[in-house]
Design a binder for these strands. Sequence first.
DNA 1: GACCTAGACTTTGCTCCCGAACGACTCCGG
DNA 2: CCGGAGTCGTTCGGGAGCAAAGTCTAGGTC
Lengths: 195, 195
Amino acid sequence: MPGQRPIAETERMIRAKLGDTPIRHEQMAMVGNIHRAAAAVRQHVENSVLRGSDLTWTGFVVLWVVWIWGEMETRLVAAEAGISKGTLTGVARTLESRGLVRRTEHPSDGRRVLLALTGDGEELMRSLFPEFNAEEVFVTGPLTDEECRRTADALRQVVVQIENHGEERRAELLDGAPPVPRRSGRRPRRAGSGD
Amino acid sequence: MPGQRPIAETERMIRAKLGDTPIRHEQMAMVGNIHRAAAAVRQHVENSVLRGSDLTWTGFVVLWVVWIWGEMETRLVAAEAGISKGTLTGVARTLESRGLVRRTEHPSDGRRVLLALTGDGEELMRSLFPEFNAEEVFVTGPLTDEECRRTADALRQVVVQIENHGEERRAELLDGAPPVPRRSGRRPRRAGSGD
DNA sequence: GACCTAGACTTTGCTCCCGAACGACTCCGG
DNA sequence: CCGGAGTCGTTCGGGAGCAAAGTCTAGGTC
């Protein structure tokens, strides 16, 4: 994505569109760059170290979580990997079909499912993670350790802000608004009445 | 995603798995937090200001690009929005079906397609963008303007690093490796031989 | 004009992604 | 033992998302 326009001109165009409606540009630039950086890093890594093992970013993250923390319940894996449990079902299915993870029933609770790495999965992660970390070092190459720490800390504060106050904030914003559901999502099964 | 383990313990677990293989933890934390923050911000915004207009994050970004820069060729919109042109085709179709953008043929080059906002799209962005920016301000609430600037700058350096040296780096890494294609992707049409 | 090469958009195949609905199961009170 | 409330993983619906293949157009050469 080499087409980024200079920031100064973007600000000028926004003013041209909105007149004097006040806009906070530092915050806008930061949010924009978070997404640009995330996409760029993800694609670089998928196209280098992960390609050879036919893994996606998410697949790798799930493997990583189970590798580090050992056999664990799927809902915890999803939380740790930062994906929804619905998504995890599909990702785990893919990884299972590649022979990298194994599902087990929970010994005492019939609702739960445990996820663990197979021998192949373990072996793969042992060789893959150092390569993955090398790419993390590459993409952050222009920054010092201290700058990485500071940036990581700032980003964590954003995550914490949303975790702590996001729900409340969304409730305020939707205060009294129509409870518009997503366009997507499963539809309830019709009760008997014909339409 | 409230399930984050403390960093110190994560580092300990990695050492337990890899022994003395050296790992750079600052870079690892930064890359991880980039993705966590990106996902958190995206979900917060989709579930607040975008929900009412039935827009996805990507849909909004595409609208934003066309709103700010005016009618432009699809490949430039894709580059500016940070998505592939294949993805843009679908997103533009969705937005067109909602009556927010309009496709026009290029006046002199029949291969190109121009994208522009409709009146509805223009009106929507005028009211939506300030709300969007307010959420950007909310999620970065714990940070000062100066910290936002610094963080945005660090993230930009990551993007630039990948833009400038990513291709070269990937070439080095894959040097002589089997040209493993993605598992996904269109398959060539079989030449006449049945399988 | 037929031919070729390059460029721009679209289609295709597979995966990811969320959130709501769902069914199976656990827990608890009666 | 039954039934309701709550939890857990899965299914489902709509939509990204990429890269490679495919289609169509532009512009040049013979």
